[in-house]
Nucleic acid binder design. Structure first.
Lengths: 345, 345
DNA sequence: ATGAAAGCGCTAACAG
DNA sequence: CTGTTAGCGCTTTCAT
């Protein structure tokens, strides 16, 4: 069922039917009702690529997900962000296009999306120090919103970010309050913007008490399970092992916990682990086990906000860049169980 | 830079330029070289929407990801599958379209994708018992490959699946070999095809030794962290708690481990946990810690295979349905550390 | 308030 | 081998 069929059926021109369907004001109400009814009855759906060709708008937003050559893995956090964004897109009639691209082919991928006309805008994931993408996209005039911040970009740009510094400041404060001093920071790669901010929060908490974290306990790698595992094994085998781990994401946290189990330490009693990007919201109203987390649902909310911001940008190209800093949904507290043990030194 | 510009520049017709670019044989080699050079020089990219409209092919594959209304969460395993599939798509020039859809709106979503002409084919995720999608898609003539199996479908269809029964048979055997008898199965919802097969493998292992698993220890829910946590808390508080947990996926496994920590049991010594859909491949060549896992990279491979199968289907519509059963990359064995403890009863 | 006609950028018969 | 001519299904001037 295409427009032509529908118009012939109704003894109207394609023009009128199109106008009726798209809510143009110059159509008689009676006509509109007839058209809408017929469209509904025959299950008419406009062909998106024809419409796109005619209007010049793709009605699609692109997400370029970098996958690192070394690990061929995707951070599961992306899934939450995409879920949030996807919800907004479908509500507003947009499609979501995902390109899984090897890290080194990124620039190429962006240029292609532009000229192929497949998308109206882009979400930029995982900004790095010296990231060329903000400049590139500004140059080719593609609307975009950065998930995170590209701190050293020269031109203004739109972004949505979690307050990573604050979250890690608070998490570290929690551990320091419990008496921990040898705290391991298992962080992401420090050419990534978020990792730099997380470390800043960590150091800030120490500095506020006139302390300095041991550099040997601050590690930085791609956030895989193996990284968490090997880091924890190594650190726990040293003469002065950490009494607590602050882990940047859920995958390395699994590895850290596994390592602790392997060496026979008791979780919580001998060593404590708290994790960002986990989701413990279910523990919130239990009373017995308040712990630390920045929930994965926060990431979902960020996806929603970023998508809304981008669609606004796409639909009203005049507006300047916008920024939004979101506080993670943190749950902080002392466990009555052995999950977070205080330490006396 | 569009085709017309390019053709005028070269004093050729659009047709010839188009043919040269698309590798049609009837173009003179010299002409082709000229065209290719000019296209390269001016950074010409065909507009995909125009091409699609002309050819009737979208050059895009759709993935409909169900998100359950109750938990608003996306199984992180999807990320791995999508990464595998996405790699194949980009290699073969296809885009990947993701629709995040509330469970109940699925049928609608599929019909829309069809009539909107946004995709050439679909991957069907998370098939259930009595799943209407196989029938629906067959009826509307949309090529598709099921990730998993829709066991009770009447018409033939293409699928790629992991051998879930076998994986769980082997995992259960491992635990039974270690002397465990009270093994908790923390499984997915049993209206999901994969969960049914996993349970079958579990029961098969018991049956092969003339044993019967305790029904009270077999649980079935949506695979969230909270589910794993609460289930483990409940089971561990009973008069006859399990000595081991066999967990269907990584999220509930985190919850199970957390619960074990909370009640003060020692992981591996008091109770053992093994997890499907985790990725311990990094432990494979360590010698010291052979354990159990079905790696997440297996899921990635499944994504690749499904994508390849679907593209073949799309590009040669004649061929009948194909099927592929993949063995998970299992790592099984007794830990020398306390990860998997044997039990004497 | 409605319609005719001209594209959007590309591919695909059909000629030559 | 190359060019001419129609479309693909929809939107959008411009008339009426």
């Amino acid at each position: 069922m295409k427009l032509k069929d529908l118009s012939e059926l109704l003894h109207l021109s394609q023009t009128t039917v199109s106008r009726a369907l798209n809510g143009y004001p110059e159509v008689a109400e009676a006509t509109r009702r007839r058209v809408l009814a017929a469209a509904e009855a025959h299950g008419y759906r406009p062909n998106m690529r024809a419409r796109s060709l005619a209007t010049g708008r793709a009605m699609a937003i692109g997400h370029v997900i970098p996958v690192t050559a070394r690990h061929e893995m995707v951070n599961p956090i992306f899934a939450d962000f995409l879920a949030g964004a996807g919800e907004v897109y479908s509500r507003r009639g947009y499609d979501m296009l995902i390109s899984i691209v090897p890290d080194e082919d990124q620039e190429q991928a962006y240029r292609e999306l532009r000229t192929k006309g497949s998308v109206d805008g882009l979400i930029v994931h995982a900004p790095k120090l010296g990231d060329p993408r903000v400049h590139l996209l500004t140059e080719i005039g593609m609307p975009f919103v950065v998930h995170g911040r590209a701190s050293d970009a020269v031109e203004p740009y739109s972004w949505v970010d979690m307050n990573n510094t604050h979250a890690f400041r608070r998490a570290t404060d929690l551990l320091l309050d419990l008496g921990h001093r040898r705290i391991a920071l298992v962080n992401g790669l420090e050419n990534m913007d978020f990792a730099i901010r997380r470390r800043a929060g960590f150091e800030e908490a120490f500095a506020a008490r006139g302390l300095t974290p041991d550099p040997a306990l601050m590690t930085s790698e791609e956030m895989t399970e193996v990284y968490g595992h090997d880091t924890a094994r190594t650190l726990l085998a040293t003469a002065a092992p950490p009494t607590a781990f602050l882990v940047s994401s859920i995958l390395p946290a699994i590895g850290v916990r596994r390592a602790i189990e392997e060496v026979g330490l008791r979780m919580g009693r001998d060593v404590s682990v708290i994790t960002h990007d986990d989701d413990l919201s279910y523990l919130k109203n239990r009373g017995d086990v308040p712990v630390f987390t920045a929930t994965r649902s926060s990431v979902r909310a960020a996806g929603q906000r970023a998508a809304e911001m981008l669609l606004d940008l796409v639909e009203s190209p005049g507006s300047g860049p916008r920024e939004q800093l979101l506080e993670a949904d943190l749950i902080l507290g002392q466990s009555t169980g052995p999950l977070l043990q205080s330490v006396s030194r």
